[in-house]
Write a protein that binds this DNA or RNA. Structure first.
Lengths: 339, 339
DNA sequence: CGGAAGTGCTTAAGCGCTTTAGCATGTTTG
DNA sequence: CAAACATGCTAAAGCGCTTAAGCACTTCCG
């Protein structure tokens, strides 16, 4: 067990001061007029002995951690998992590291995680806000901490955010079903005051208006266990007998599909907000509103890094378009999955 | 923007020394014979002003971060995502926080992540080792860093690990297919020298022996894009025409199902190693070898915490049984999914 | 009644790094 | 030729905390 080598060891070994080594290591050799020869000598020695500075000490001294805290709704949801991956890669190339945690959309957990990140002095925050955390976000804001929300925002709070055009996405999805000739198009969504859910509801309603249809809406509880939710959806389907269903999130869609599996009613047309790897496997395959995750990740990192650089002071609100991925839903093909 | 309050502020405000406050805050009041009155006074004041110690300074001083680094193959894989969640919760209740990153099973990324965690001075490591990181793990070991591997281990290295009984799991899966009357049972697996994959292969082969069948094995590359893998599996199925397929991981199973969807050959019996939420949605539903994720998470945390406490010195190897979740595969029921 | 032991607290060092201020030199320049 | 400046480096303070050592006083006990 070789013991940890310190900057002072290097200084001593090379017969120079700790200051000089520090300057060189931080790329300030030129600026601080350290001779090229010495710079080279130090760099080579550092390389040779494999010195790694103690990041804790560095952070304590500089007040910077080069870490971005990512507070995400559910890391096991492919939509979020993929965004997290992209953010991670992009941040990495800029010298930042990501630490992430899931909130399950629970306010207390969210608040606690943000506190944890504050304790760890992360340099910036990327957050999918749950309900009821307005004050926590406000606190970050008043402490001037770099912050960008995504997937949804908090109405009335002036923050950076990156969201997709949920109204438009939901409208397109519903309109697509209407154009296919479906008449009883249902929306299955959550009890939620969050912007993305409200916007999806609005988009659905607008399309219902455009096509002069009747709305059929079922709301379920996020917190309920899957069996309960499945039962609720099942009853709704049996009662209302929609000929098409628009699920407002991919996990509601999955639960909905499970309900449909056991349901005696005919297979309705199906669209899901957010895609899922397995959706293309079903017969008929499932049309989905796909958010531009690459663009979202890019914008999130851009906005945050601009804040971190201190370049940009004003807040930025970005809305990106979603795309409807239409899969052949009316022509069930011969498929092994269908047994 | 209220400025951060320090332990010295508290000491000054209360007219006591920083040391005293520190002792009280760290629960050493009794041990250090601080009077109950003062203890109470300090605690109340701390509460009132909402003081939070600077964890960085604490860590620098104590050398402990109370953080566990979780290096996981792929956080978007439900198996790993669920384990991560469980580990997180359990660690949390013991006062530890988790930071996690995905390796995609790539050696360089894994090595880099472990280095990142070392830089951040995490107290302990939970790792799904990719191939080619023996030296990195060895380095952790020789520096006496608390460490536990899972899902697989590194042959010849004496480390803590928690794995499931892959041989048995694969045997049961294959035997199940054989008992159903399938004759041409194929295994689709990865090119991999990792223990879990080798064990699954061994289990399959043993069952093939027991039932006097012929083996049909297809190996695919982890790194290939999905379309390539799908094509490879497709060709294999078309050539060999197995009447049952055992997929060695859940993501191979998913790719395999996609291949099957476009395949003209009759639907084979299917078993997947590792379950997936959506498997129960297919018709016929898919039987899966389900690992005991709760038990795995429990053991991982237990083993690691014991190391962290310094109580336990010797290493511990734990193997847990997997369970075969048999779903009604021979009786395709009327299902909406089947169009 | 004097030394030992107990009580309740504080002083000060130091974790490993960054950074401000400044100290010798050598080189211009008016 | 002294003042002014440039060059190449260093001393030392300090980020916010923990903790070993110790100080002054009281109580106990043979």
């Amino acid at each position: 067990m070789k013991k940890k080598i310190l900057i002072s060891d290097i200084a001593k070994d090379l017969g120079v001061s700790v200051t000089t080594v520090s300057f060189i290591l931080n790329g300030k050799a030129k600026e601080k007029r350290i001779s090229d020869g010495l710079t080279k000598r130090v760099l080579e020695y550092v390389q040779k002995v494999g010195y790694k500075p103690n990041e804790l000490a560095k952070s304590l001294r500089t007040g910077k951690t080069k870490i971005i805290g990512l507070v995400i709704e559910d890391i096991s949801n492919p939509f979020f998992a993929n965004i997290a991956r992209l953010i991670e890669t992009r941040a990495y190339s800029k010298g930042y590291r990501i630490i992430y945690c899931s909130t399950d959309n629970q306010p207390d957990k969210t608040i606690e995680l943000i506190q944890l990140f504050r304790d760890r002095h992360v340099d910036g925050y990327i957050i999918t806000p749950s309900e009821g955390i307005r004050d926590t976000i406000q606190a970050l804001l008043s402490n001037q901490l770099p912050l960008v929300l995504f997937d949804r925002y908090i109405p009335g709070l002036t923050t950076n955010y990156v969201v997709s055009d949920n109204v438009r996405g939901a409208y397109d999805a519903t309109a697509h079903l209407a154009q296919q000739g479906y008449k009883r198009i249902a929306l299955v969504t959550l009890y939620s005051s969050q912007t993305q859910m409200q916007d999806r509801m609005n988009g659905y309603m607008r399309a219902i208006d455009t096509y002069k249809l009747q709305p059929y809406v079922k709301k379920v509880n996020m917190g309920d266990d899957e069996a309960t939710t499945m039962q609720a959806i099942y009853s709704f389907l049996a009662d209302q007998e929609p000929d098409a269903v628009f699920f407002a999130t991919n996990y509601i869609a999955i639960t909905g599909l499970k309900a449909l599996k056991h349901s005696p009613v005919p297979m309705p047309g199906i669209v899901s907000y957010d895609d899922h790897t397995l959706f293309k496997l079903f017969s008929p395959t499932i049309t989905a509103v796909s958010q531009p995750i690459e663009a979202i990740a890019d914008e999130l990192i851009n906005v945050l890094l601009n804040q971190l650089d201190g370049k940009v002071k004003e807040t930025k609100q970005i809305m990106l378009p979603s795309e409807l991925i239409i899969r052949e839903s009316s022509l069930p093909q011969t498929s092994l999955i269908t047994s």
